[in-house]
Simulated assay, not measured.
Amino acid sequence: MSAQQHATIVPREQLDFGLDGDIPKYWMDNDPFKTRFFDAMSTLFPQGEKFFITSVREYRDQITDPKLLQEVKDFTRQEAQHSLVHRHYNDRLKKQGIEIDAIEAELQQRFFVDAPKVTTARQRVGITAALEHLTAMMCTTFFERRELLDTSDPRVRAMYAWHAIEEVEHKAVAFDVLTKVAKAGYWSRVMPMITVTFGFPLTVAGIMNHMFKVDGFSLWERTKLWARGLWWFYKPGGLFIPTLGYYLAYYKPGFHPWKLQEMPSYGTWLETFQRTGDAIAAGNALHAAGQ
Rank of each mutant, 00 (worst) to 15 (best):
P11T: 11
P201L: 10
T140A: 08
P32Q: 09
T64K: 06
H82K: 05
W258D: 12
A182V: 02
G18K: 08
L107V: 12
P192E: 11
R110P: 05
E271V: 06
A80F: 06
F112W: 06
R145N: 13
A281K: 15
H170K: 01
Q261Y: 08
S55W: 03
C139H: 05
V168D: 04
A121V: 01
I165A: 02
F38M: 01
E79G: 00
E13G: 06
L178K: 02
D215A: 03
A281H: 11
G238A: 06
M1N: 05
V156N: 09
G185N: 07
N284M: 10
V190K: 07
Y247E: 05
F200L: 15
M1Y: 09
S83M: 12
W231F: 12
M28W: 01
A102D: 14
T8P: 00
G254D: 15
T135C: 01
L134I: 12
D278E: 10
A161S: 04
E58H: 02
L260S: 06
Y247C: 08
M211S: 05
D61N: 06
F112M: 03
V56P: 00
I194C: 07
V204W: 13
H170W: 00
T203G: 08
R189G: 13
H287A: 11
Y266S: 00
Q4N: 07
H163T: 04
F38E: 00
